[in-house]
């Protein structure tokens, strides 16, 4: 059998090069799932959107009526438990079994009658905020018929704007 064997090395190299190209193509196609430290911003963004949507829902009066929104009532009556129930139900709702693991801490920031800005705790979730969490902040304006902090004189009431600020993180 007279056969030329000159091209064997070239054939091997050709196959090797093709394999390398296939592997690199595979890596490139898969590279969107590469997770780096910087990608945590994507989670932050999603958490922030979720939180601000949840607060907007709480701050909408039932059936879009002119009545008070749940958030308005909660802030006026300082109803920590109701806020916890409504807010946790909203943000930890998932389509699958079980819920999400998002925790929060909510504060109310107000301007007192002397014009100073102060903050009062409104509500928090079962896991307390200790400071090491990677939290995002969302806020929602509310008009309440109450002067913060409590003031008994009649002229202290009337409508005031306060800012409900919530820190959100995932356990």
């Amino acid at each position: 059998m007279v056969m030329s064997e000159n091209g064997q090395l070239y054939t091997i190299e050709g196959i090797a090069a093709a394999l390398i190209l296939l592997v690199t193509a595979f890596i490139v196609v898969n590279s969107t799932s590469v997770y780096t430290q910087g990608d945590t911003h994507i989670n932050d963004m999603q958490l922030e959107l979720l939180g601000s949507d949840a607060l907007s829902m709480l701050n909408t009066a039932p059936n879009s009526s002119f009545g008070k929104s749940p958030l308005q009532t909660i802030v006026e009556t300082d109803d920590s438990a109701l806020f916890r129930t409504l807010f946790l139900n909203t943000i930890n709702n998932t389509t699958g079994p079980g819920g999400d693991r998002i925790q929060y801490k909510a504060n109310v920031t107000y301007v007192d009658k002397d014009g100073f800005v102060s903050t009062l705790p409104l509500s928090d979730s079962p896991h307390p905020f200790v400071g090491g969490e990677h939290a995002v902040r969302v806020s929602q304006w509310v008009i309440v018929e109450k002067r913060f902090p409590d003031c008994s004189a009649g002229s202290c009431s009337g409508k005031h704007a306060v800012l409900v600020e919530v820190l959100l993180w995932r356990d």
């Binding site: 920031t109 002229s155 009337g158 409508k159 704007a161 306060v162 800012l163």
Partner: peptide
Amino acid sequence: DEGVFNNKTNVQNDIKTLSLHRQ
């Protein structure tokens, strides 16, 4: 603004102050 309740003035001042301090 109704009588002793300066609703509009208070809310508008609150918006400016809280925006500056918190946002």
